[in-house]
Nucleic acid binder design. Structure first.
Lengths: 235, 235
DNA sequence: GTCTATACAACGATAGAC
DNA sequence: GTCTATCGTTGTATAGAC
């Protein structure tokens, strides 16, 4: 996993995880290859990317339910009949998007658990890692957040469970730091939930951060510094 | 305005603002009386309440676009033809909900500006007031948050502007406290945005707070205490 | 693999009886 | 004021040519 999460920079993060470019879309293709008719990867990967990106553009602008397959056909340049060689049904498209994102998040936060870092480094890596991930997969996160209630209950529960596991990751690091006498905190669970809320803002409130000209690194640093203040940590 | 915002309790808040019961719905009725055919308040108020509450139940469960007017007819017990005596169109219904909520929020945050409270009391009143309001009007807030992108651009912009004005309210109090030497803060705007994010969680993440058995007062107090820590405030 | 043409259900909205 | 019945439109999905 290269030098992430020891080095909390976007460059190191990108080196460790393939979340962009042709290699990324090839992985996405292989993840639900069974559910589509097209067998040739050459043509499938390119069209899959087109379909997903058009879905993000349309659904994130006016909502997935309001987006029609006629819209999607126009935006991708693929006919309506053609789309069904890739997606099975409209609802399945949303379901696949959520599934792919959750799989990737699972991998990244799994890595954070295994590392033997000290509490402060763990908090820093968790915060920066999540902001990096949201930055790279911005439309995925926003889509899944806003369209979650359109999915079936099982998938909804898995998404909420994932958020709780991320919260737990933070709580564990906070408790470890308290044991070492570095931190002081009365309600670790609530503090963790508040960190998660601030992280999610990076995709929910992009309009605000663009308006205030806040960079990704500045934002992550701000969350981390305020967390240390809330933990009464002294350098 | 009674004893609010000097006394930051839900009881004082409810005494100052009418946000529940028949009196509240009568006000809602009067707010868009012009847009509906029914003239008799007696019958209109009761049905209006039924329609709004059924809309929240259905739309907050599966999305406003996914909710059909046939669903709404079934849930309210009013026929489809009957509904149109109250709502003009489906989209107008969403628009009215957003308009009503924004009007009320405008009034409450307007009151917070006029008060001559010291910085700490202003922050406390802003945080507790917003949590109280979200608590009472929970389905309204959740609906407007999740369905905002379905409204026309003008209404979207007004909603975002309202959020920015609330942020400014917090920023002003923080700057006032810094001038008095009570607070220290490098990025007041970002800190304010993070407070707003945490407040919005009270309607966005009700599932989490129920799971953790967190009370409204406990949550508001937690946000307030952590804010003071972030401001390096010493009692 | 991709297209055109079309099936068929469901939607929002309205007319007119009561 | 409220209902039933129905209109016209648009949605998802598929069949079959190429």
């Amino acid at each position: 996993m290269a030098d992430w999460p020891q080095e909390t920079t976007i460059a190191a993060f990108k080196r460790a995880w393939t979340l962009e470019g042709e290699a990324f879309w090839t992985t996405v293709f292989s993840m639900h290859q069974g559910k589509m008719q097209i067998k040739s990867p050459k043509v499938a990967v390119a069209n899959l990317q087109k379909i997903f990106e058009a879905t993000f553009k349309l659904a994130n602008a006016k909502g997935f339910q309001a987006m029609t397959l006629r819209d999607l056909s126009r935006e991708t340049g693929i006919s309506m009949g053609g789309l069904y060689a890739y997606i099975g049904s409209k609802n399945e498209l949303a379901s696949v998007i959520e599934g792919v994102l959750r799989t990737y998040i699972d991998q990244v936060i799994g890595e954070l658990v295994n590392e033997g870092l000290d509490p402060i480094a763990r908090l820093r890596a968790s915060i920066f890692g999540e902001v990096f991930m949201i930055q790279i997969l911005n439309p995925w996160y926003y889509f899944c957040y806003m369209e979650l209630k359109g999915l079936d209950r099982e998938q909804q529960e898995q998404a909420l469970d994932l958020e709780l596991r991320f919260d737990s990751l933070l709580v564990d690091a906070i408790l470890a730091g308290m044991k070492q006498g570095q931190f002081s905190c009365e309600k670790p669970k609530l503090l963790a939930a508040s960190i998660t809320a601030q992280l999610q803002q990076w995709h929910l409130k992009q309009w605000k951060f663009k308006l205030q000209e806040v960079s990704m690194e500045e934002y992550a640093e701000h969350i981390f510094e305020n967390l240390l203040l809330c933990l009464s940590y002294r350098r």
